[in-house]
Design a protein around this nucleic acid. Structure first.
Lengths: 174, 174
DNA sequence: TATTGTTATACTCTATAACTATA
DNA sequence: TATAGTTATAGAGTATAACAATA
C-alpha cells in the first residue's frame, strides 16, 4: 500500500537539457519541463536526510505493523527495554518528544500489557517504566525485523559506508 | 522559540553504567536510570536520518520564517524557479507529495504573487508553473539563507565529509 | 480508458496552556 | 519555586475517495 505517488523513472536521454541552473532566467514564456532538475535541493542536508528518513519509515510502517508499533512506539518501547525504570521525562529528553504526546502512547503500551509502571524509588512524582516479559519478547522480534529492514533499505551501501553514514548523521543532531 | 524540550547534557561520569545492552534482563524490580542508553536506536539509519533531519528543519523553520516559507513551500518554490513551466504532477512525483496537498500550497504562492500559472503548451489538462520576478528575487535570498544555515548545522563535518554524507543519503532514497 | 487538477474530508502528528502532586 | 506527569485542545501535516476536464 503505497502512501505516496511514486516518481516515474526519469528519461535519461533528456539529461542534457538541464544546463542552466541559475535562478534568474528572466524567461516568462510558456515552457515544457522534460526532466525536473533537483540539483540544488540535493545539496541541502535537511532535504536529503528527510527524504532518506521518509523512505525508510515508509517500509518501517509496513513491516512493523504486525507488531502494532509505529516508529515512535518502537523507539519508546526499545528505550524502555534497554533502560528498565526509565521515566517519561527521560524518554522525552532522549527521543525529543513532548510530554503531552507521550501520555497516550504510554497508556496504550500499558493497556496492551507491554509495559508496567512502577513507583520511582526516590522521586514520588516520577514513574519508572518497565517492559513486561510480553513486551520484551515482542521487542526482540520487532528489533530483529527493524534491523533486517534497515539493512535492505541500505543495501546499496557497503558495511563501511553504512557505518560512516551513521556516524556522520550523529555529528549533526547529537 | 524551541519546539521541543531540549535534552539535558549527559553526565559523562555515568557512562560506565551502561554495560549490559541485552534486551531480556529478566529484572522486574524498581530501578533508577542514570543515563539513558540509546545505542541500539543509534544503529538504525531511519532513526538517525530522522533525528538529523528534524534537527536541521527546526532551525530551518526559524530562519526561513521571514520569507514566509516552510520546508515544503521552499522545496516547491525552489523547484519551480529551477524548472520554469513545471507542472503540479511533476512536483508531486519529484518531491514525493500528494496532489491534494499541493493545491492549497500552489494557490497560496500564487496569491502572494510569487508564482504564475500558465496554460501548458501541449496538454490542456496541465498547468505550467512559473516563478514571478518577485518570487525569483525571494528565492535568491531564501536559498542563500538555507545554504548558510545548512553549513552551520553541518559545521562539525569537513567539506569532504559533508559531500560524502549527501551522496550516501541519496543512495538510500533515490 | 487514463491522466491532471481539484474538492471534501478524515486521520495523524505536533504544539501550547494550564492543572495536580511532589521535591 | 521547580519538576513530573497529566488534561484539554488547537494547529499542522498527511491520507483516501470522488469528481470534472482533457488526453
Amino acid at each position: 500500500m503505497p502512501r505516496q505517488t511514486k516518481p516515474k523513472p526519469l528519461a535519461s536521454k533528456a539529461a542534457a537539457q538541464r544546463a542552466d541552473q541559475s535562478l534568474s532566467t528572466h524567461d516568462t514564456g510558456p515552457r515544457v519541463v522534460d526532466e525536473v532538475d533537483t540539483r540544488y535541493l540535493q545539496t541541502l542536508m535537511g532535504y536529503n536526510a528527510r527524504r532518506a528518513a521518509l523512505s525508510i519509515i515508509e517500509v518501517f510502517l509496513e513491516r512493523l505493523a504486525p507488531y502494532g508499533l509505529k516508529p515512535v512506539d518502537f523507539s519508546v518501547m526499545s528505550t524502555i527495554c534497554h533502560n528498565p525504570g526509565v521515566t517519561s521525562r527521560q524518554l522525552c529528553n532522549t527521543l525529543n518528544l513532548l510530554p503531552p504526546n507521550l501520555v497516550g502512547l504510554i497508556q496504550s503500551l500499558e493497556s496492551r500489557g507491554l509495559i508496567e509502571r512502577k513507583p520511582h524509588p526516590h522521586d514520588g512524582r516520577a514513574v519508572g517504566l518497565h517492559a513486561t516479559p510480553k513486551g520484551q519478547a515482542l521487542m526482540v522480534q520487532a528489533e530483529q525485523t527493524a534491523t533486517e529492514l534497515e539493512l535492505e533499505k541500505t543495501a546499496k551501501l557497503t558495511p563501511a559506508q553504512r557505518k560512516t553514514l551513521l556516524a556522520l548523521l550523529q555529528k549533526i543532531y547529537l
